[in-house]
Simulated assay, not measured.
Amino acid sequence: MLETEFRSLVWRFYALQEERVEAYKLFEEGHEAYLKTGPHYDFDHYKQLVHHITLAFNGISKEVIQIKKRLHEEFDRPDLSEHIEKLQEKEKEKLELTAKLQLAKQNVLDNPGDENCIETEQQFKQQIIKTIEALSEILQDFKYDSEEPE
């Protein structure tokens, strides 16, 4: 019974990570649509999207934190709890970088040919790639450790 509960908690965690991926996809698509409304951007519509995405990320994050807590307290798995803690920090970093990248993309459109804007956009893209790689490593560690019997 406890093993089944543990497994379902781990699978719920993975499902929440998938929800994050989908939320990022919607965020990106919404930002692309917003950029197409330039030079007189439809900021109200975009602001509404950001609000919905923020609510989605907050909901996911709260549930992930509950899973982290249960893994630590109910299942005595501080190792898995620690992976989730690291993951949450990287997810926060990724979201902040994504917002900065979106601003950088708009700056590139608003300032055609400005090398500084282009360079800044590239830097944020590289940082996001590194953050995604770190997230993948954490998830691999989580997967490996969650499949190991304690």
Score class of each variant (00 low, 15 high):
15 A>W: 13
123 Q>P: 02
22 E>R: 14
91 E>Q: 09
59 G>M: 01
25 K>M: 08
75 F>S: 14
56 A>E: 09
52 H>D: 15
103 L>M: 05
69 K>G: 04
15 A>D: 14
26 L>H: 09
108 V>G: 01
140 Q>G: 02
72 H>F: 01
147 E>K: 11
95 L>P: 03
106 Q>K: 15
111 N>H: 15
101 L>V: 01
20 R>N: 00
144 Y>W: 06
7 R>P: 13
9 L>R: 10
127 Q>M: 03
17 Q>N: 09
26 L>P: 00
16 L>D: 05
80 L>N: 12
75 F>M: 12
6 F>G: 12
5 E>V: 05
92 K>V: 04
7 R>N: 11
135 L>D: 01
135 L>E: 14
130 K>L: 06
70 R>W: 05
122 Q>R: 10
109 L>R: 15
116 N>D: 11
65 I>C: 04
65 I>M: 08
91 E>T: 00
55 L>K: 15
51 H>V: 08
146 S>K: 05
77 R>A: 05
51 H>I: 03
69 K>Y: 10
118 I>H: 13
93 E>R: 15
49 L>K: 02
94 K>G: 03
117 C>T: 14
44 D>C: 02
30 G>L: 02
140 Q>M: 07
31 H>D: 00
91 E>C: 02
59 G>A: 14
143 K>S: 05
66 Q>Y: 00
48 Q>T: 13
63 E>L: 03
139 L>I: 11
34 Y>V: 07
27 F>C: 06
31 H>P: 00
18 E>W: 05
24 Y>V: 00
116 N>P: 00
141 D>A: 02
77 R>I: 02
119 E>R: 15
99 A>I: 09
113 G>N: 11
